[in-house]
Simulated assay, not measured.
Amino acid sequence: MAQIFISYRREDSPEAAGRIYDRLKSHFGEKQVFFDIDSIPPGIDFRDYISESVSKCDVLIVIIGERWFARDDNGVSRLEDPSDFVRIEIEAALKRGIPVIPVPVGKAKEPAEAELPTNIKDLHYRNSSEVRSGTSFEGHIQRLIDGIENATNEVLTPHKLEDVEEREEKYSEKRKSGKWKVLLGIVLAISVAVFAVWSFYQNDSKPDKSAAARATEATKVVEDTRNNEELPLKELYIRTSKDSPRVAVGEKATLYVTVKDKEGMVIEDATVLISSGGGKFLESDNTTYDPATRLHGPYSVSGKTKQNGVFTSWWVCKPCAKAYVMTVTVSKEGYKNKKSELTVNIK
């Protein structure tokens, strides 16, 4: 499972970093998100300690606030100091070649290449994912989560897997208990049937309707017991993505919904329903439309996942809101219905 390292300056953006950490922790699980180096053991080279911590992660999130450069009295950025914690974290991640996602917060912008030391200039070329406060926060944080999942090919979140495993354990106990109920029901049915046959021959070979009725009831007991032995519904896992982080007004967006099971195996023929609340869903990638006209309705689309477990749809809008948070619902016989969201940001 993906390990996420959050790099930030405490004097720059502690509140934004804390809020982002809470959402990532909620989605991926607390054990998967590394937030703070609270204490470095005495006598340990902090450069090695930080590098080792970053080496255990699969993606680095660099939170950039308005004071991220933290210049001294002479106007020199702290990033110019080779011993700067943030610089060491970024250097270590870039050397390992893992995804590094700049996350501008507040009014900050992504740093220009000229503002960065030579060893971390590549940060300028890493695609950023801004997270602003206010009404934009939910859409931005979902886009960041999507970006992390896309960068790490993460589908199943570990804390959800732990919950599923715990439930499977409970269901296993129920199944064992249910099997004993069925066995007892069969024994009871056999006993009643034997009694019915004995009663039949004890009445001068005249059919004893009450005995036959009792035999029928015994058979029904077995059937009811079997019917009551319901197997638990399995869990579905959804991953939503799109071909572009932002689309322009009148520009077609390709949306993907990938469905898998607990073991990460793709699910074919799952029913997917996407509702946008605006814009227009297209029947296929080849469907023509006039981007100069008003594009509205239908506001939802449904279909089945293919052999690769993916359902693909196409959507456009004009006029457009700043962002659309679409509802994704997936259903499949033998599985619990699953809901998720897919955010499409507009340029």
Rank of each mutant, 00 (worst) to 15 (best):
residue 85 F to I: 02
residue 32 Q to W: 00
residue 98 I to W: 05
residue 33 V to G: 01
residue 27 H to V: 14
residue 32 Q to G: 02
residue 11 E to D: 15
residue 26 S to A: 15
residue 32 Q to F: 00
residue 20 I to Y: 03
residue 53 S to K: 13
residue 47 R to I: 09
residue 77 S to L: 09
residue 50 I to R: 02
residue 33 V to W: 01
residue 25 K to W: 02
residue 87 R to V: 09
residue 68 W to T: 04
residue 87 R to C: 04
residue 18 G to Q: 13
residue 97 G to Q: 06
residue 75 G to Y: 09
residue 89 E to N: 04
residue 74 N to L: 13
residue 55 S to H: 07
residue 55 S to A: 14
residue 11 E to P: 00
residue 22 D to C: 03
residue 42 P to F: 13
residue 49 Y to N: 11
residue 19 R to G: 12
residue 15 E to G: 01
residue 93 A to Y: 07
residue 70 A to Y: 14
residue 71 R to Q: 11
residue 27 H to K: 10
residue 10 R to K: 12
residue 91 E to F: 04
residue 32 Q to D: 13
residue 70 A to L: 14
residue 48 D to R: 13
residue 34 F to M: 06
residue 95 K to M: 03
residue 36 D to T: 13
residue 66 E to L: 11
residue 40 I to D: 01
residue 61 I to E: 01
residue 42 P to H: 07
residue 93 A to D: 06
residue 64 I to E: 04
residue 56 K to Y: 02
residue 91 E to Q: 14
residue 47 R to V: 10
residue 19 R to F: 09
residue 69 F to D: 14
residue 22 D to N: 12
residue 75 G to W: 08
residue 93 A to V: 06
residue 84 D to M: 08
residue 68 W to P: 07
residue 15 E to H: 09
residue 13 S to V: 12
residue 19 R to H: 12
residue 94 L to P: 03
residue 75 G to A: 12
residue 63 I to T: 02
residue 82 P to I: 10
residue 19 R to N: 14
residue 43 G to T: 03
residue 78 R to S: 15
residue 63 I to W: 02
residue 13 S to E: 02
residue 43 G to L: 05
residue 53 S to G: 00
residue 97 G to K: 03
residue 88 I to T: 13
residue 14 P to D: 07
residue 17 A to T: 06
residue 57 C to I: 04
residue 17 A to F: 05
residue 17 A to H: 05
residue 29 G to R: 00
residue 45 D to N: 14
residue 13 S to L: 08
residue 70 A to H: 14
residue 64 I to K: 07
residue 61 I to F: 04
residue 20 I to S: 03
residue 67 R to T: 11
residue 66 E to T: 14
residue 92 A to D: 00
residue 53 S to T: 06
residue 16 A to M: 04
residue 89 E to A: 04
residue 19 R to V: 00
residue 19 R to I: 03
residue 65 G to W: 05
residue 74 N to C: 05
residue 56 K to N: 10
residue 69 F to T: 13
residue 12 D to Y: 11
residue 14 P to K: 09
residue 12 D to C: 11
residue 18 G to A: 12
residue 51 S to N: 10
residue 23 R to Y: 05
residue 65 G to F: 09
residue 82 P to S: 07
residue 66 E to Q: 07
residue 65 G to A: 06
residue 12 D to G: 10
residue 48 D to C: 00
residue 83 S to W: 12
residue 86 V to D: 03
residue 12 D to E: 11
residue 48 D to V: 09
residue 98 I to K: 05
residue 50 I to T: 02
residue 56 K to W: 06
residue 93 A to S: 10
residue 83 S to N: 15
residue 63 I to L: 09
residue 21 Y to M: 02
residue 45 D to P: 01
residue 28 F to W: 03
residue 25 K to A: 15
